[in-house]
Amino acid sequence: MNSLVEKLISAIITAILIIFFGFPVGFVIWTSFRDYGAILAGQFFGFHYSLTNYFNVLFNPGYAFTKGLINSIIVTIATTGLVLLVSFPAAYALARFRIGGGSLSSYIFSIRLLPPIIFAVPLLVLLYMLQLHDTLLGLTIVYLAFNIPLAVFLLRSFIMEIPIEIEEAAIVDGCSKFRVMLYVTLPLSKPGLIATSILTFIMVWAEYLFALLFTLKNAVTINVVASQFVTQHTIRYGEIAAAVTIGMLPTVVFLTLIQKYLVKGLTLGAVRGA
C-alpha cells in the first residue's frame, strides 16, 4: 500500500516536471506546423498541419531569415575552429607549466563571469572606428575572445587527466615541448576537443546581445532575425514558431549529444568527478 502511494506520487512529480520543462518546446514545434488560418481562428484542434511556415520562413524573399541562418553557421564554425586553435596551447601551458600563476587564470575566469554588456559599449565604438561593425569578421573576433575562457578551462581539465608520464617519456626521447604537445597530448585530448568544440558551438549559436549590437543588416545572426520577426511580422505566429524551431534545433541536438561533458563545460571544469 505504502509503495503504491509512493509510486503514484513519483508518477505525479514526473508528469509535472515533463509538462513544466517540455511544454514550451512542444508547443512551439506544434505551432510551427499549424496553418495560418487555423491559428488566427483560434482553432487549437483539428487537422490543419503543413510545412508552409517552414517554406515561407526559408524561401520568402522578403525575409532575412536564410541570411541570418547562413551567417550564424559561418560565424559559429569559424569561431569554434579559431577558439580551439588558440586555446589548446594555452590550456596546455596552464595545465603543465602552471604559467602566470593564479592571476592569469583568475583573469580568464572572470571574463566568463563578468556581464558582457560591460565590454559591449566600448567594443561597439571600436568596431565602428575599425569599420568592422556589421561584418562577420568583427563578430567572429568578438566571439573568439569571449569563448576562450570556456575552451581554455575545459581543455585544461581534460589535459590534467592525461597521465604526465607519457609526456615525460617523450621529453626524455628528445622531443621539444611543442612537439610533445602536438604529437602526444593533442591526439590524447580528442574527447576534450570534441566536447569543447560542441559547447563553444552552442554558446556562439545562442549569443544575442553582441549580435544585436554589432550587426545591422549584413551580418545579422539567426537570433537577431528571429527576434525581428516578432516585431515586424507580429501576427505571423506560425512562421515565428518555425523560425524558432529551426534556430533551436542544432543546439538542442548537440546538447543531448554531449550530456556527459555538460556539467564540466557549464562550470568551466570547476565541478570535478562529474
Binding site: A206, A226, S227, I240, G247, M248, V252, V253, F254
Partner: peptide
Amino acid sequence: IPLGIAPALFGIM
C-alpha cells in the same frame, strides 16, 4: 532541453 535553447529564442517561444 531548455538549457540547449538560445535564451533569445526561448523568450520568443
